[in-house]
Amino acid sequence: MARKLRKRDVEVVKTHLSSPWASFTAIVLATIWTIPTFGLFVTSFRPSTGINSSGWWTVFTNPEFTFTNYTRVLFEGRGATPPLSQYFLNTFAIVIPSTIIPITIAIFAAYAIAWFDFKGRNFLFFTIFALQVIPLQMSLIPLLQLFSGGLHIGSFTVIPSFGITGTFIPIWLAHTMFGLPLAIFLLHNFIAQLPRELIEAARVDGADHFKLFRQIILPLSVPAIASFAIFQFLWTWNDLLVALTFGGGKREIAPLMVRLAEMTGTRGGDWELLTAGAFVSILVPVAVFFALQRYFVRGLLAGSVKG
């Protein structure tokens, strides 16, 4: 592998590569990226009358803050409205399986398409790629029909209805179906790039596909899985459409997004609540991103891939 470097050389190289200008540019970009969100953050602490009559940057010269927006988002709701904690719980109950199931299935399929030799695998791969563009709205009605009534041809029942309407199961299944094409596409790209020698060597050692997958592919794919898991997590976290459609209108299983959308008010002008709500819902995803970041650490793959 490359040439042997003396220790001193390596250090010279490292400091060269971490140029202060690069860091400075990155920080400037990150700041620009954050200004709009920061505006939202400031706005979420402003009273509604202020929001509508002056720009958010004026608070620095003319401070006027309130926690009302947050208390309303977090605690408002009476009688039949369940507390926000229930919606958080529902969101987790939706998001966790809706992330684990599609990724598991997708990594299997990605491996099969990348390393099994069978006719038409390219065709299959590009069909799956193209499936990404199918608008999810076009699948809502047929899927809902399937979940609520099963599948019948004439009087013959192909798939019974199972009575799963009103549970989390249709939501999990729908998220799995809609998440698969992109998951397979991204994970395939990663798995297909693993060095052929590695796989062939294992095959020669007598490992079957199952062992090979379990002992070599899976451990190597952790960063790719982590990257994709974050995105699948976010999409399901922020999803409104699937939860609304497949939740069967049941409040007991509605996630946070449904509640926030409901809270925005019939008049649609309650920005102060939307701003606070947006920040309440952003906390968990950002925390997850921080938590999973260590999976992206440099060198995790170095030496095992390419090189």
Binding site: L144, T165, L240, L244, T245, G248, G249, A261, E262
Partner: peptide, 21 residues
């Protein structure tokens, strides 16, 4: 009585009706 209000009412109602829920 469960009052179920959503901003997506106009788009969702046809979907739920056709979808059997």
């Amino acid at each position: 009585i469960n009052w179920n209000g959503t901003a997506e009412f106009e788009a969702q109602l046809p979907v739920r009706v056709e979808g059997g829920t």
